[in-house]
Amino acid sequence: MNVQTPAEKLTLKDFSTDQEVRWCPGCGDYAILKCMQRTLPQMGVSRENTVFVSGIGCAARFPYYMETYGFHTIHGRAPAIATGVKLANPELDVWVVTGDGDALSIGGNHLMHALRRNVDLNILLFNNEIYGLTKGQYSPTSHPGTRSPSTPYGSVDSPLNPCRFALGSGARFVARTVDTAQKHMPEIFTRAHAHQGASFVEIFQNCIVYNDGVFSDFTDKPVAADAQLLAVHGEPLIFGKEKNKGLRLKPGTLALEVVTIGEEGVSVEDILVHDQTSETMAFILTKLSPPDFPMVLGVIYEDPASSYERDVYRQYESVRKERGTPDFNAFLAKGDTWRVS
C-alpha cells in the first residue's frame, strides 16, 4: 500500500483505457470495473504505482481496461506473480483480479499461501459460481445440483465458501460485496487498499449468460433488504426493510438466530455487535446464507499484522547493515585459498 498525492487530479477517465470492453452485455463485471475506475481517483493513488495482476477467465480481462500497469498472466497463478511483483518493489499498489475457478480451483494453493504469508495484495475474487470463459462448466463455488455442460444431471460435490477459505488460510482482511452494490463497494475497495497485508474481497458477480440469477435470492431488489446484512464494526448486526431484524447468539450456544426487534421482548441491546477483529465471529457470519439467514456483506474481518514483503525487507536491511557494502572479490576469496605463481 502506498498512498501518494499526485500533482494532477485524476478522474474516472484517466483510469480507463481505450480498449473496447469485451464482456457480454449485462455482465456484472462492468459494474465492478466502473466502480474501480471511479474509486481509484478518490483514493488519490497514482496510475504508475498501481498494478493489476490477473489470471485467466472473464474476470481476468480486467487489467486491459485499467489505465495503470497490468499483467494478464496464466490460469490460477496471479497471486504468485503478484507476490513476485511485491518482492521486487514493495512500494507498488498491487491488485489481484481473479475468478472463482481461477482462485479456488487451479490457483487454490497460491491463494492460500498469499493469504497465509500476508503479502500486501488487494485480492478481488469475482465469484459467479461458474466457469464463464470456458462456456459455463460448474465451478468449485457452484452449489450442489448445478446443471452445466459438464454436469448435465447436476453437480454432486460440495462447494467451497471463498471467505471461509480465506479465513482458514489466515487472511487478516475479509470482505464481501455485490457487483451491483455501487454504494458500498467503493468503501470496500478503499478499505482493502488501506489495509496493510493481504486483503481478500469476494464480489458476488452475476454471469448473465451461464449462471444468471444465482444470487437473486439476496440481490433482487424486492428481497435484498431482507436478505442482506451490511456488517459495520462496532454496530449491532441489524438488517431488513424496517431495520428491525437482527442476529443474536442463541443462549448457551455458538449459533446465531434471526430475531425481530420489538417482538418477544427483543431489544437492540440483545443484538450481537459486529467485532471485525474477532475471527470466531467472522467464521460464524460467513457461514450464514439465505433463506434462513441474511447474506452478510461488508468488512467482516480485519485484524492487521505486518506484511510479508515488509518483513522480508526488514530482515534484508538488517543483514545489509551488519555486513556493509559488499566487495565481490573479497567475498570470493573468503575461506581457504592458495596462490599459484
Binding site: 498494478v51 495482476v53 499483467f71 498472466t73 496464466i74 497463478r77 504468485a80 506473480i81 503478484a82 507476490t83 513476485g84 511483483v85 511485491k86 518482492l87 521486487a88 518493489n89 507498488l92 494453493n109 497460491h110 492460500m112 499461501h113
Partner: peptide
C-alpha cells in the same frame, strides 16, 4: 515458494517489476 509453479511465477513477477 509453495511449489515450483509459484516459484517461476514469482520470479517472472519480479522481472516484470524490474528485478
Amino acid at each position: 515458494a509453495e511449489d515450483e509453479i509459484a516459484a517461476v511465477c514469482a520470479a517472472l513477477g519480479a522481472s516484470y517489476a524490474g528485478s
